[in-house]
Simulated assay, not measured.
Amino acid sequence: MTSRNHVIVAVLVVCAILAAAAYALGDRTGSTRNPTTGATPGGTPTPAGTPTGTPRSGASPVWLPSDPAIADVCRTRLPAQAGTTLGLIAAGGPYPYRSDGVVFENREGLLPRHTTGYYHEYTVATPGSDDRGTRRIVTGTSGERYWSADHYASFREIDPRC
């Protein structure tokens, strides 16, 4: 192998390492995007939760999980009631339960660590239940959404692309 080939291989390895690191870190850049308007200082507003990557023409929007250690689930694979709750969240309410929208403190420590007030919780109605049931959606101010079918014993990040 020539010296030039060694350089090309080294460059390719470095690029692969950088791409893997960027994927693993996701959007942990300390973005100053306003979670309500989606605006960045001096930037144009985008709805909260809108993927910020630039997709190829005709490609699905770019979405990276907030934490690769948390399993994900397609939005369309959730119960219909979860879709209703996601619609209410996108519209800003009104919510059917007084507790919807309150701060979720992440006491279980299963979601990525953030300051208090970063996460909020919403009820997903359970047919036949005479109370709020165990199903919840938890949102983060950077737009991420998490599904819990078992009252915070486990979480899956909701993939909005599918």
Rank of each mutant, 00 (worst) to 15 (best):
A16K: 07
A125E: 08
V62G: 00
A24T: 09
I89P: 02
A90V: 08
G92R: 06
T126F: 01
H6C: 12
R161P: 05
D130I: 11
H114L: 03
R75L: 11
P55L: 06
A149Y: 04
S66D: 12
T134L: 15
P68C: 03
F155H: 13
A24W: 06
T52N: 13
P41T: 00
G26F: 03
G53I: 04
A80C: 04
F155R: 10
L78F: 00
L88P: 05
T52Q: 15
T2I: 09
T37Q: 09
H120P: 03
R145N: 11
A20M: 09
A39C: 11
C74P: 09
A16I: 09
P65Q: 01
D72G: 14
S148Y: 00
R28Y: 08
G101F: 00
P68S: 05
A39T: 10
L110M: 09
T46F: 15
T76V: 10
H6V: 15
T54H: 04
T76D: 09
A125K: 07
D131Q: 08
V73T: 10
H151F: 02
G87S: 11
A69K: 10
W63L: 03
A19V: 07
A16D: 13
A24L: 12
Q81M: 07
P65M: 01
G143L: 01
R56M: 08
E121D: 01
V14M: 05
P127C: 01
D67I: 06
C15Y: 13
T54P: 02
H114Q: 10
D159P: 03
V138F: 01
T76N: 07
R98I: 12
T44G: 13
T29P: 06
Y97S: 13
G26S: 07
C15W: 14
L18N: 10
D150M: 08
L12G: 09
P41Q: 00
T46R: 15
T54K: 03
E157N: 06
G38E: 09
L18G: 10
G140N: 01
P51Q: 07
D159S: 04
S57V: 09
G58Q: 06
Y119R: 02
G83C: 08
